[in-house]
Each structure stands twice: as structure tokens, then as C-alpha cells.
Design a protein around this nucleic acid. Structure first.
Length: 775
DNA sequence: TTGCAGTGAGACGCA
DNA sequence: TTTGCGTCTCACTGCAAC
């Protein structure tokens, strides 16, 4: 019989010595099903470093008695960096030890190198069978008996999966949850501190809370486990479950000797690759891993993201600090607030998950990584998995990751701007400049011509300045991949034009094109990443060299035509708008450089200081487009950002410097009168390394130390919020965690002289205003 | 001890 | 665990002047 299937999660088990792939998902009727596929044999490749592959093959044949893990081996034709090679495909019994086997083989034969022995078996399956997660496919299957798995039906695959069309994913059951821990001093330790509240909510409106009695969490963990299995969610969502909630639940359950089996195979969640926690048969999505999708939100808390998305009323305070949890719990009259707080969090998680799910699903399908890996896998790995799939299709072996010396190279070109206010400035930019250059100059690891190597008859592209040469034909690996991506994206854009923006199809296609854009734009960076399998400094260096050449020629052309160039950064130029001249420029750039430059917005006016990468433009609709300045930085006090934004607005919209000065003075006097909201004085900075590794004393590290001393646990990447007090002389001595400080110890002068004034003067200095004039 | 110039650490943003 | 380019603040160092 045939079954259509949508893949949600994938895993594998070794059952009675032979491996099976387990594909968890849905059938066409919305049943939760498991398809077991036993058709794939684990393997790796083995190739001679020198000498013939045949003699290596014979050696393995002779020694087979000593190599019990090998099922069979045979010679295959492959490529490595585009060069044809013969390799031996070594089929093995156990997928868990391929690297061990490969090393053993190398030692035993004292020859050869191995390939692809580091590919996890479930990923091996997805690549080899060309299966994309979160998409529809069809299997020929045979029903088998369900032994205690939490699903409707189990099938054994009798055929390879066949791709099916269809955009719409199944209807998911989504469960969000949040836990509250009673941790004295704010730092909860799983060994001692109990969970007091577990809030859970599903997308059908079922919500519940498990509340501990006398701080005993044994019962509520069991109840929660039962609840999860009853609701039987396909997707579990949370905020920080990967790093915090799930490990905590698992550890508490262990210490009570409770079976915390919420997996669809009856097992307990476990830590897996890329630091995510796997809940077999379901997709565990931690929204924190997706918080970079909201770059405007600087401090990535659930509440801040919710505010940003308009899910909380402005000014609505729902946050209860970890530190205060015990006191809220202990005082009967406040406990209700704690309960509401936790419930709100679960609800926000559920709401936010809807904003993220479309993109996550499309990215999963495109990249080929299972849904629960998408949030945690770094960009480099997403690009790499996409490349690996393509490599497999064209018979290219996955290169091993090698150690490369660290080496920097020249990047994009940035011109100093013309300071001051300019009117009618148009931005022109090359869309996807680097990918398009890689395509047009065929820049790829497999098209690079080594020094001394003769030029092929098809000719070469020789990079300006850096001199690397790449063959013009045939098309390289990167060119093929990027051409395909760009083509797919433009096809999607065409389809989208015919659709209603609010429609389901539009939303899905938009998510698709965003996923494609992400991969396309990351490919250049990937090529220059030391950890990349297809690392090539020549590729990265050549691409940016052609980029500089392109933008320089564009600037020259603009000047020849008579356009005034105000500024340029990497792939864009800012010119004083003149319709006829701009049109001429577009024509000539296309003709001369073979790349298209696109007109963007025309700013009614734009302000530059002497600094590169910082400016503010007034858009046609009256909004400000602020780039690089303090307003959009996360490490300035809110009060400074507000001052600067107000000043920019007045300067650009009204051109009234006097008024701007008055506004600054008002901010200063409000601060001196202590009328400024306290939270507007908090400065947030990230801990970018372990505290002991810092070489110089800094305010946020000192504040972090105080938090630690008070019992708070901190980890890498945490944002520390501090304020500057009157105590001490050095700034780092004056810093104090904001929640330990009060209004009367604030160093008002610091905020005036080092926060408000610099932010305002950054703009007003352009009009010769001095610090004294703001007093 | 104070002032100050020069340098580097550190954080964050742009393309 | 994508790249380089760039700004800005503050700590630290060394030196001169007091």
C-alpha cells in the first residue's frame, strides 16, 4: 500500500545489530505515523593518498577477517573539489562507529584517507534519499504492529520516498510550556531547588497549571508528563527550554526517580547535536534560538519580544525577576501574581511561535535539517548542509574539515561620507552583490586554477589585485548552487505578485524566499569561514576583490555622468538625485559591469557626520531611517537614544537647531529633577566571554560579578543591565546591577555628560553646537 | 598625585 | 562555529609636571 507522508522528526536506532531509520510525521489524513526504513546501510568512503585504488581494494579484501565491521566494499567513481577520483565505498554494520572504523582501517593499511565517516546516520538518510524535512513525500509501505509508540500507526518502508507537491503542512498540535523554579537568591540549582509551577497551553485552547504543594515537585512533574502525553503535541514550544527548562525537568525527574518519558517512542528527551534537546517524534522549538529574527529587540527576553510584536500593552509590566520568585511564592497574597506571570509566559510563547513557525518550516525544507535543528544550527552549518545535498547529487565527496591558518583578507570598500545635510539623495545598490559576482566570475573551490597550472582553453577570470584565476567553464559548484537559488527566489517572487498579501500561499512563499535569501547571502561568508568543509580563502578574497572593483567602477561612472556621490559602502552608492543621470548610470553599469544596480529609496534629506556607517535619512513618508547611530545601538541608555532620535527628527524635519537644543536641555533638566523613568538609565552589555578571561576591568563585568556574588548564575551571552552610581571614581567602580540600585545613588552628571550630551552632540556638532550650549 | 596622549580591549553595528 | 570594515568608550600605560 501507499502512504503519503510529511516529515516532522527523524532518528535512528540499532535494532538487533542492524540500523533502522525512524521517520516521524503525518499521513495525508492527519494521522500521526512512524515510517521505519531499513534499506540504508551505513558507509564511508576510503581513497588512497597515492597509488592505485585497486591495490587498496585488494588489501581490504585480503584482510577482511580482521575487519569484522565491514559488510562489503566496492570501487566507485567520485569527485573531490571537482577532480575525478576513484574511492572505495565501505559498507558497515553499525552507524555509530564509522569514524572509529575509518581510523582503524587507516591504521591497519597504513594508507588512505577517509571521507564522510563523520556524517550522522539520520542525516545520511536525508541526503542519500533526497528527503526534505517538513515536506510531503510518498512511500510504498507495509503496516506493522505498534508496540507502545505514541502514534496512530507504524509502517515499514518498502520503497524509497518519492517527493510530492503540496505547500500546506498538516494541522499541528502545538504545546507551549513554562516552568518556575524556587531558587533562593535567584540562581536555581537542579540538585536542590524545586519546580513550583509548570504552565502549559495548547493551540486548541487547553491550558493548565501544575502547582506544587509545599515545594514538592515530584507530583507536578509526573502530572506534567502525563499531560504532555495526553495532549500529544507535534511541536513543543518554549522560551529557553534547550538551555534551561528541559534539562532542569529531566534532572529533577531523575533525582526523584521519575520516568520523564514524553517522547513518542516512550523515551526521555536527550541532548543532541547543535545543543538542542531532542524530544523524539516531536519537534522541540525553543523560541530563544530564533530571537535573532528580531534584531530591533536588543535584550532578548520573552517579554521584550512580545512587546515588540505588540502582544503586550505598552507599559504593562509582567516581569517577575528570578530573584523575587521566592518572596512572591511565600506570600500567599502575591502567589497569584506569580501564577499569572507564568501563565502569561506560556501564552506569549504560543503566540510568538506562530510568527516563527512558517519560516522555520521553510528553512528546514530548504536546508534539509530537521525542524528541531533549525534554530540551533549556526548559519555556517545551514549553508553547509545545503551544499552537501548538492554535492551528493553531483558525485562530489564531502571534503573533511581541515585545520587552516588564520588569515584575513581585504573586504568591502567604504568611502568617507560628505558630512552635513543633503537633500534628495538616492541610494542605489547591487542586490546580492557577492553571490552575483561568484556566479558571473565562476568563483568556486573547484574552478580555482593553481599557481603554475596552465590556463584551460575556455579561458580564465583573473581577479583584480589579488590575482587568483578561476576557469570560465565549466560552471563551478558554487555557481550552480547560487544560480539555482537565485532562480528559485525570482520564480517565487513572480508567483507572489499574483497573490493576495494576506493569503496563506503568500505567507508560505514569503517564508520560502526569505529562507533562500538567507542561504544565498551567507555563501560568501561561508567560503571564508575556517571551519567550512569547502573553505577557500581564494574564493572569499577574490569575491570581495571583484566587489571593490565593481563599486569603484560604479563610482567612477557616476562621476563621469555628473552625479554627486555622497557616500558608498560595499555594494551601495548614495547620489544626489537626478532622474536622467541616474537612468544613464543604470544603463551604463549594466553594460560595463554585467551586474545590475537597483534604485532604492530617495531620501528627502539625509544627514551624515564625518563617520562611516552612521547616518540618518528622512524617508518620503516622513519616517526616519537611522543607521549605525546610538539610537539603534543596544549599549546606550534609553534616555540617550530618545534624545538623539528627537534631535534627529527636529533637525531633519524642521531644520530648527534652536528647538533641538531646547529639547536636549529639557531632557537634562528632567533627569536632574529625577523625572526620567529609571529604566531609561539602564545600560545593557553582553558578557562575550567567561568573566575570568577579561583583561581589563569594565562596568558590565563588575556588575556581573556583583550579581554572581549575590548568588545569581550567569552564562556566556547574558546581557547585564547596570546603572552608574556616585560610588567610586573609575566607571567600573561606579557600575551596579540595575535591580540593586535606587534613584538616590545615580550619578546624574555621568548621564548628562557621558550619555545625553554625546548622543545629542553627535548630531548637533554638525551645526557647530558645543557641549556648553546644552547646559 | 594629576594630567594627558597613545594604545588596545571591548561591544556593537553595517553591508 | 559566515566575512571584513568601522565607530566609539573606557582602561591602562608611560611620561612629564607638580
Amino acid at each position: 500500500m501507499k502512504v503519503s507522508f510529511w516529515l516532522l522528526d527523524i532518528g535512528y536506532e540499532v535494532v538487533e545489530d542492524s540500523p533502522e531509520i525512524r521517520l516521524w510525521g503525518f499521513d495525508g489524513d492527519g494521522n500521526r505515523i512512524l515510517v521505519i526504513d531499513r534499506s540504508l546501510t551505513p558507509y564511508f568512503y576510503f581513497a588512497p593518498k597515492e597509488g592505485s585504488v585497486e591495490s587498496l581494494y585488494d588489501q581490504i579484501t585480503k584482510l577482511k577477517g580482521e575487519l569484522p565491521y565491514i559488510i562489503r566494499h566496492h570501487i566507485v567513481e567520485k569527485k573531490i573539489f571537482g577532480k575525478p577520483i576513484k574511492a572505495i565505498k565501505v559498507d558497515c554494520k553499525n552507524p555509530d562507529n564509522l569514524s572509529k572504523y575509518a581510523n582503524h582501517l587507516k591504521k591497519t593499511l597504513n594508507a588512505g584517507s577517509s571521507f564522510e565517516d563523520d556524517v550522522r546516520f539520520s542525516m545520511r538518510y536525508l541526503v542519500d534519499k533526497e528527503v526534505n524535512p517538513c515536506s510531503w513525500m510518498e512511500f510504498e509501505v507495509e503496516e506493522i504492529k505498534n508496540e507502545n509508540f505514541r502514534i496512530d500507526q507504524i509502517y515499514l518502508a518498502k520503497s524509497n520516498p518519492k517527493k510530492l507537491d503540496g505547500l500546506a503542512p498538516p494541522k499541528f498540535r502545538v504545546l507551549s510550556f513554562d516552568i518556575i523554579v524556587y531558587g533562593v537568591k535567584g540562581a536555581a540549582k537542579a540538585a536542590q531547588d524545586p519546580i513550583i509551577i509548570i504552565s502549559a497551553m495548547d493551540n486548541k485552547g487547553v491550558k493548565t497549571q501544575f502547582i506544587s504543594e509545599n515545594k514538592d515537585d515530584e507530583t507536578i512533574i509526573e502530572k506534567f508528563r502525563n499531560f504532555v502525553n495526553e495532549v500529544d503535541p507535534d511541536i513543543v514550544v518554549s522560551y529557553e527550554a534547550n538551555q534551561v527548562h528541559l534539562p532542569y525537568l529531566i534532572s529533577r525527574a531523575e533525582s526523584h526517580g521519575i520516568d520523564f518519558s514524553i517522547n513518542r517512542d516512550g523515551g526521555v528527551p536527550h541532548r543532541s547535536v547543535y545543543g538542542h534537546v531532542s524530544v523524539t517524534g516531536r519537534a522541540n522549538l525553543d523560541l530563544y534560538d530564533f530571537s535573532d529574527e528580531f534584531p530591533q529587540v536588543k535584550v532578548k527576553s520573552l517579554e521584550n519580544i512580545a512587546h515588540f510584536l505588540g502582544l503586550l500593552k505598552t507599559g504593562e509590566s509582567v516581569v517577575i525577576d528570578d530573584f523575587d520568585i521566592p518572596s512572591f511564592w511565600d506570600a500567599e497574597e502575591n502567589r497569584q501574581r506569580l501564577l499569572r506571570f507564568s501563565e502569561t509566559r506560556a501564552q506569549l510563547v504560543l503566540q510568538i511561535s506562530q510568527a516563527i513557525l512558517d519560516n522555520a518550516i521553510q528553512l528546514s525544507t530548504l536546508v534539509g535539517l530537521p525542524l528541531d535543528h533549525i534554530g540551533t544550527a549556526a548559519t555556517g552549518f545551514k549553508v553547509e548542509w545545503y551544499l552537501m545535498r548538492h554535492a551528493h547529487r553531483i558525485g562530489e565527496l564531502f571534503p573533511n574539515r581541515l585545520e587552516h591558518p588564520y588569515y584575513t583578507y581585504e573586504g568591502g570598500l567604504v568611502l568617507p561620507p560628505k558630512p552635513g545635510i543633503h537633500n534628495n539623495v538616492m541610494v542605489l545598490d547591487f542586490k546580492s552583490m557577492y553571490p552575483n559576482i561568484m556566479i558571473s566570475k565562476n568563483i568556486s573551490p573547484d574552478t580555482l586554477i593553481q599557481p603554475g597550472e596552465p590556463e584551460p582553453p575556455e579561458g580564465v577570470w583573473e581577479a583584480p589585485k589579488v590575482g587568483y584565476r578561476f576557469r570560465r567553464a565549466p560552471s563551478g559548484f558554487y555557481k550552480e548552487v547560487l544560480t539555482d537559488l537565485i532562480k528559485r527566489r525570482s520564480e517565487i517572487s513572480i508567483k507572489m505578485r499574483e497573490l493576495d498579501e494576506g493569503s496563506f500561499e503568500y505567507r508560505i512563499l514569503d517564508a520560502q524566499q526569505r529562507a533562500i535569501k538567507l542561504l544565498t547571502n551567507a555563501t560568501y561568508g561561508y567560503a571564508g569561514w575556517l571551519g567550512a568543509r569547502w573553505y577557500s580563502k581564494a574564493v572569499a578574497e577574490t569575491t570581495s576583490a571583484w566587489g571593490r572593483e565593481t563599486i569603484q567602477n560604479t563610482i567612477k561612472l557616476a562621476k563621469v555622468i555628473g552625479l554627486e556621490v555622497i557616500y558608498s559602502d560595499t555594494d551601495s552608492i548614495f547620489v544626489v538625485y537626478d532622474q536622467a543621470k541616474v537612468e544613464e548610470l543604470l544603463e551604463r553599469v549594466k553594460k560595463a559591469l554585467g551586474l545590475e544596480i537597483k534604485p532604492e529609496t530617495i531620501y528627502r534629506s539625509i544627514l551624515f557626520t564625518e563617520a562611516k556607517k552612521r547616518y540618518c535619512g528622512l524617508l518620503p513618508d516622513g519616517r526616519l531611517d537611522i543607521v549605525g547611530l546610538e539610537v539603534i545601538r543596544g549599549d546606550w541608555a534609553e534616555v540617550s537614544k530618545k534624545v538623539q532620535e528627537d534631535v534627529l527628527g527636529i533637525v531633519l524635519r524642521e531644520r530648527d537647531i534652536k528647538k533641538a537644543i531646547e529639547v536636549v536641555k529639557k531632557y537634562i533638566s528632567e533627569l536632574r529633577d529625577r523625572k526620567t523613568p529609571f529604566k531609561d538609565l539602564i545600560i545593557w552589555k553582553t558578557l562575550t566571554k567567561p568573566i575570568e578571561k577579561y583583561k581589563v576591568k569594565t562596568a558590565h563585568v563588575e556588575a556581573a560579578l556583583m550579581l554572581k556574588k549575590a548568588g545569581r548564575s550567569l552564562s556566556l551571552g547574558d546581557k547585564i543591565g547596570y546603572i552608574i552610581t556616585l560610588n567610586g571614581s573609575k566607571l567600573y567602580e561606579k557600575a551596579k546591577p540595575y535591580n540593586f540600585a535606587s534613584w538616590d545613588e545615580i550619578d546624574l552628571d555621568y548621564y548628562v555628560e557621558n550619555q545625553i550630551k554625546p548622543a545629542a552632540l553627535r548630531i548637533l556638532e554638525q551645526f557647530n553646537i558645543t557641549s556648553e550650549e546644552l547646559n
